[in-house]
């Protein structure tokens, strides 16, 4: 079972307390964007086997959204961080680099 620390309320929450929200750091495109941009935002996904940044909501806790860095091939959690960022913070990147030297980085 996955256990993630909610960065909003500090609780170590297990999976049954959380609602998954799939890929994080998607750039939102609205009505004036091109079809390609809108499709990429709505549907195209990285879906990596390995390091993945994703959204979670502490549904049965504080109710807030937060982000997590996790390995989809091993279920290892690298860390969680608040959702108000457009890319992963440096300390999370450093943690991932320490454990996954071949990781190609966030893009």
């Amino acid at each position: 079972m996955l256990i993630l620390e909610c960065p909003c309320c500090g609780v170590m929450a297990d999976e049954t307390e959380l609602a998954p929200g799939y890929e994080a750091h998607l750039k939102r495109f609205g009505p004036d964007s091109s079809d390609e941009e809108f499709e990429a935002y709505m549907f195209a996904r990285k879906n990596p086997k390995g390091v993945h940044f994703e959204r979670w909501r502490h549904a049965y806790g504080c109710g807030k959204w937060f982000l997590a860095a996790r390995d989809t091939a091993t279920l290892e959690v690298f860390g969680t961080y608040p959702a108000q960022v457009s890319e992963p913070p440096a300390d999370i990147i450093a943690k991932i680099r320490a454990k996954r030297p071949d990781w190609k980085g966030f893009k």
């Binding site: 079972m1 996955l2 996790r70």
Partner: peptide, 14 residues
């Protein structure tokens, strides 16, 4: 199905 990306061929116990 589980609600999160996963390649481990095992799902959550709950």
């Amino acid at each position: 199905t589980d609600g999160f990306n996963n390649y481990t061929q095992r799902g959550s116990f709950h």
